[in-house]
Design a protein around this nucleic acid. Structure first.
Ligand SMILES: [Zn+2]
Ligand SMILES: [Zn+2]
Ligand SMILES: [Zn+2]
Ligand SMILES: [Zn+2]
Lengths: 162, 162
DNA sequence: CGTGCAAATGTTATAATATTGCACTTTTTG
DNA sequence: CAAAAAGTGCAATATTATAACATTTGCACG
């Protein structure tokens, strides 16, 4: 059901967006929450961007298409989308990105290219396990994990080599 | 040489601070960089707090003790301290905490209690390895890792149970 | 149907976090 | 000492996020 983005490969991105929106509608229906036009449009804008979008980037796009929006409009939509697991906030960028594992219970790990800005979301069991073990060893009850790795994606490594 | 804080146990914290400052002076001397009075005072303020301190918290303390400080004063000191590996920025809190492994080459993992606000910095080889492996599997060259785990520390779990 | 509640949105203002640019001072270096 | 580099003071501004309250919309219920 989920649209798993192919890492770093060119692809028909509009298909990703369409799939993500369809998934979102389905998830919201199941959860009996309302994916209102504003919320859906915000989700679409975030998905359309290949790079994480700041709240004010979203706001600017909404404004430019005639939507009478203010910061709370955007932040409320983003809060909703996060709660439904449809987008993630990247703390190290103050930006938001569409979840590529929506509907699956997961903790995301993000590979953020510092050159091109692209972000790849992963789920890796051995990482999750290691983190849980480390927390347990300190008797710490882990609830939410923020794991963001900055570096160079394959494409940008190649460019540097040239 | 480093002052490794005892996790979540009461301790003579002034000793931690003194040790951390001594370590910092030594590290800066080795690196041939200048731990100026402002920088040293900012580091001390951060260490004196048990919880991560926001830049404007630091600024307020400096101001209250007569230092003629503005935001750039603090951010510059913090940038310096981060570069020297003496403090870490906690992205999910927009706050700063003293590094308990200063001088050691390490990637920190932070256990952040959402109840009491305390932060414990860990280094865990199996976590680092798992993250590196996951990044390598995507041909991603990892450079900096942000790993912040929010949850409940042992003490606050106990309180909840009461 | 209405009527009434809860959820969602609009609107204004403001808070919190962070950076830019430029002048000035201190430290280092030759 | 003089020049260069590093650090600081200072004012303004940029960026990110929230508070507070009025208004509208969707929906359950009678
Ligand atoms: Zn996800
Ligand atoms: Zn890249
Ligand atoms: Zn550290
Ligand atoms: Zn606690």
């Amino acid at each position: 059901m989920s649209a798993h983005a192919l890492p770093y490969r060119p692809h028909n991105h509009q298909a990703c967006v369409t799939q993500a929106l369809a998934d979102a509608r389905s998830i919201c229906q199941q959860q009996n929450v309302r994916l209102t036009p504003t919320r859906e449009r915000v989700l679409e804008l975030i998905w359309q961007s290949h790079k994480p979008l700041g709240a004010y980037d979203v706001l600017a796009k909404l404004t430019s298409e005639g939507h009478n929006a203010a910061p709370p409009t955007v932040y409320r939509a983003l809060d909703f989308l996060q709660q439904q697991g449809l987008v993630h906030r990247i703390a190290s960028l103050n930006a938001f990105t569409g979840c590529t594992h929506a509907g699956e219970h997961h903790t995301g790990m993000f590979l953020i290219c510092r050159a091109c800005g692209n972000v790849l979301e992963l789920t890796d069991a051995s990482v999750s396990t290691a983190i849980q073990n480390a927390a347990n060893a300190e008797a710490f009850r882990a609830e939410t994990v923020t794991l963001e790795v900055a570096g160079l994606c394959p494409g940008c490594q190649a460019e540097k080599a040239v």
